[in-house]
Design a protein around this nucleic acid. Structure first.
Lengths: 200, 200
DNA sequence: TGTACATCAGTGAACGCGCGTTCACTGATGTAC
DNA sequence: TGTACATCAGTGAACGCGCGTTCACTGATGTAC
């Protein structure tokens, strides 16, 4: 038999999952408390046993996104070879991530404007963490290749900007039409990295 | 005396202006027909004399944004000197534009996700035009400087990605705290252009 | 193990509210003669 | 210029709807003895 606490956590999980699914269609900020509650199989009144309001649920969703992104980064870093072709492999992995976690990624790029200020702040914090992890990766790779960068932080920001822009476009088109996005993204990232290298 | 037609156009203008102002605060997709109508000084029922629904108004807003952006580009191009410092001047001009037309810019970056598919399509078309105009500028500048680019289209896309990303951040912070954004944006754009140049 | 009481996730009804949309209407502007 | 009629931007009331939130409640789970 499941304990009362376990059941409560299950319902909480269901609320989060359902909110993620629904927000992919209309955007999280257009989601209603009633809609989410009913889709999760509880009455609207019971929603308040789990979250104070929709903003509170939104912050929980962002935690979820952060967790998933960090996991993706960890996996990607582990699988990545040293030497040639790293950009291609990373871009490929990223686009796969976007396609299979489109709900999470949509939240990340789609709600930069909508939502409360607490929500936006948490969202930018997630993106910042993404940027700073990339910065460290770039620095490591640069010193391994003996091709130092003038400013790894700027390079990381620029790369994230184009990666997220392309990711947002990928959401709009079916997966089998995305090859050109991959090649475009690879070229643009390489362009940035080339421009970021110290001239000798 | 104003003709009936002129008065109608004035009301239409007022609806558009008011929608632009209100959408800066909550985002266009969270705006209600009643809210906009009353703020423009007409009853909700009279709204239908001007637009079929809110989506229709949204498309009119995008026209407005497109017009204003093209004007900005034309002015910027005219004022721009040849030779050194062009990136700095362009970035400065762009950030001024973002600050004084924040409502328009917010619409452009904030509704990439919200809104109907017709709305999103029109929005991406506006951005695409921005990209292709920049591409031509880059090509001209490159041939004038005799520093040919490997792929001006990719360079333009990457530049727009970082420019819009920084522009979106600028919306979040007061103008007097934006100096670091300007230097950051200048460096990132130069980085991309450097990486885009043909190696000889 | 059994009993008595406490906890609390979830229920279902109710509330007031702003929403989009419709409708018959008003009265100023425009047009034809 | 004056008159009779047409047009049509805007009015105001009404509608049904989904919303967030509250409330007293139920009944299964948990706890103390």
């Amino acid at each position: 038999m499941k304990s009362r606490n376990e059941k409560k956590l299950e319902t909480r999980r269901r609320l989060i999952q359902v909110a993620l699914q629904l927000s992919a269609e209309v955007g999280f900020s257009n989601l209603s408390l009633r809609e989410v509650s009913v889709a999760a199989g509880i009455t609207p009144a019971a929603f308040y046993r789990h979250f104070r309001d929709m903003e509170d649920l939104g912050l929980a969703l962002l935690d979820e996104v952060g967790l998933s992104l960090r996991q993706f980064l960890r996996d990607a870093r582990r699988r990545l070879p040293t030497g040639k072709g790293r950009v291609e492999i990373s871009v490929q992995a990223f686009l796969e991530y976007v396609n299979s976690n489109s709900n999470l990624f949509r939240l990340l790029v789609g709600e930069r404007q909508g939502g409360s200020s607490a929500f936006r702040k948490a969202l930018f914090a997630e993106i910042d963490q993404f940027v700073s992890e990339l910065k460290e990766d770039l620095e490591k790779a640069a010193s391994a290749d003996n091709k130092p960068l003038t400013n790894a932080a700027y390079a990381a920001e620029a790369v994230i900007a184009v990666v997220f822009t392309v990711g947002a476009e990928a959401l709009e088109i079916p997966k089998h039409k995305q090859e050109f996005l991959a090649t475009r993204l690879v070229e643009e990232v390489k362009m940035i990295l080339r421009g970021a290298r110290k001239r000798d």
